[in-house]
């Protein structure tokens, strides 16, 4: 079999994928008050992982990131559901969130919000689902 010439792709991927993941984290934290959030951040992280899959093969990527994406999806769902259900303990409607402003060292006045926990769940679910789909189609070839 002819060896594909993908030197450029592989070299660029090594750099680019980190930038994409960093940017996706930025998007994730920017959510709520600015455009961004768990869904978009998760999709972008998944995109970085897909880029890795394109440049290398599934085996290599699985060695670098040995995640079980189905468990990751379940974990994300669990976090999201439990965060929303936490409201039940205080006898307020489901999905009610609590937030306040805090003085944090380095960051200054920051708004801390339980919605971010919910968003972590969404983030994990999106990565998990996307990668499960890609792997399901990719594996059988």
């Amino acid at each position: 079999m002819k060896k594909p010439n993908d030197l450029i792709l592989k070299t660029v991927t090594k750099v680019i994928s980190f930038i994409i993941i960093l940017f996706s984290l930025h998007l994730f934290f920017a959510g709520h008050y600015e455009p961004g959030g768990g869904f978009i951040g998760g999709l972008m992280t998944a995109a970085a992982l897909v880029l890795l899959l394109l440049a290398y093969d599934m085996k290599t990527v699985n060695t670098i990131l040995p995640f079980n994406y189905k468990i990751m999806t379940a974990l994300g769902l669990l976090i999201a559901v439990l965060t929303s259900a936490g409201a039940l303990l205080f006898n307020v409607p489901f999905l009610t969130h609590a937030y306040d402003y805090f003085e944090l060292p380095l960051l200054g006045e920051t708004s801390l919000h339980t919605a971010v926990l919910f968003d972590i769940g969404v983030y994990l679910v999106v990565i998990g689902i996307t990668m499960t789909i890609i792997q399901t189609i990719g594996e059988s070839e």
Binding site: F39, I129, I133, T136, I137, S140
Partner: peptide, 20 residues
Amino acid sequence: VLTAIVISFGVTAFFLVLAY
């Protein structure tokens, strides 16, 4: 529309796997 897009994303992905 974001909700609807997410749903159709999931369904289309499922449909593709099913077709395959």
